[in-house]
């Protein structure tokens, strides 16, 4: 939907000349400017919550460009807000591995600058530490919390998020309502600890088939309201597809995973979809630039019933 970012970008250019005029005309221009800066910071904090404590770039320019910008004084880096709640959903039932690995990667990246442990709350018995180690969550940092029930899990997550010395908190939560996710996000902001919700059972029915066409149009995983700052949907990509780069030079086809990663929602940023693959040293790379503008492509015609499409165009017209 190209129309949504445009109003925001349309406001900004008008705001800037006004600021310039004020500087010329009014006394105490410096105060005014400072006030504006404060206001702008407040607006930014509302638009992209959690960025106040800095952002962590993923290291893939194509992806980072879609993520919110850091607060002032951090030379305009874009990345994942640290003190915020993020959500990673598996695209399908069988993408649990991919979603887990991607989450582990994000957790390791978000916790890179701090010393604290990474707490992984789960109710499933199948988390395998050697695999997490390969994604940068080593045994020296990992603390696994086995919760008996969802309530315990969320309680433990909140408790851990409020502890500023924690590196990152991952929670494999199932059903989570808006209030619960707000609580978690608030806890993450309070403690300054990144929180990651990993949702493995997001896909129901048809999870294994038809992944190719399942863009954001399918709405899977995005039906439930959530206070998470970013929402990702992760599936696997065939390694052949990820071959676009110089993949062939590596000896094994299995040295790094390839993921179809969609940024479904991003407060203070833009959605996007990429095929990412992991290179040596946990470095992410996007497969070609062709995949980057994926969100701008309209949903497949077959997925849109005529009524909805007219509805959609009329709203677009109203906005534009």
């Amino acid at each position: 939907m190209p129309a949504i970012p445009s109003p925001i970008s349309a406001i900004r250019p008008t705001a800037c000349p006004e600021e310039g005029r004020a500087e010329d005309v009014l006394e105490g221009a410096l105060d005014r400017q400072r006030l504006l800066a404060v206001l702008r910071e407040q607006v930014r904090a509302v638009e992209a919550p959690g960025t106040g404590r800095g952002v962590v770039p993923l290291g893939v320019p194509a992806v980072d460009a879609h993520l919110p910008a850091a607060g002032p004084g951090e030379n305009g880096a874009h990345g994942l807000p640290r003190a915020a709640l993020h959500e990673v959903a598996a695209a399908g039932d069988l993408d649990a591995g991919a979603a887990t690995a991607f989450t582990a990667l994000l957790a390791a990246r978000l916790a890179e600058q701090v010393r604290g442990p990474i707490l992984w709350m789960t109710r499933a018995p199948d988390l395998y530490a050697p695999g997490l180690d390969a994604q940068g969550v080593g045994p020296g940092r990992l603390v696994v919390v086995h919760a008996a029930c969802e309530v315990d899990l969320l309680w433990a997550m909140e408790e851990a998020l409020r502890c500023p010395r924690v590196g990152a908190v991952v929670g494999e939560a199932g059903g989570l309502d808006l209030t619960a996710s707000r609580r978690l996000h608030l806890a993450a902001e309070t403690g300054g600890v990144p929180g990651l919700l990993l949702r493995l059972n997001a896909g129901k029915g048809g999870a294994m088939k038809g992944l190719k066409g399942a863009g954001r149009g399918s709405g899977r995983g995005s039906t439930q309201a959530s206070a998470a700052v970013t929402r990702w949907q992760v599936g696997t990509a065939p390694i052949q597809e990820a071959h676009a780069g110089d993949w062939g030079t590596t000896a094994s086809a299995f040295t790094g995973p390839a993921w179809r990663v969609e940024l479904l929602r991003c407060r203070g940023g833009r959605p996007g979809a990429w095929t990412l693959y992991e290179r040596e040293g946990l470095r992410l790379e996007a497969a070609g630039q062709a995949a980057a503008p994926a969100p701008e492509t309209p949903p497949p015609a077959s997925a849109v019933v005529p009524f909805t499409s007219t509805q959609l165009t009329s709203t677009l017209r109203a906005v534009g």
Binding site: R115, G116, P117, A129, P130, P139, L142, V143, V144, V145, H146, A147, A148, D152, W155, A156, E159, A160, C163, P164, R165, V166
Partner: peptide, 28 residues
């Protein structure tokens, strides 16, 4: 992990509520 008092207290709190054997480190 528990060398850091806030972390140690967090681990205690989690363990006290969730019960023994639920807050674990997975070592090689």
């Amino acid at each position: 992990l528990v060398a850091d008092p806030p972390i140690a207290e967090l681990v205690d709190r989690l363990g006290a509520r969730l019960g023994p054997g639920r807050v674990l480190r997975l070592l090689p």
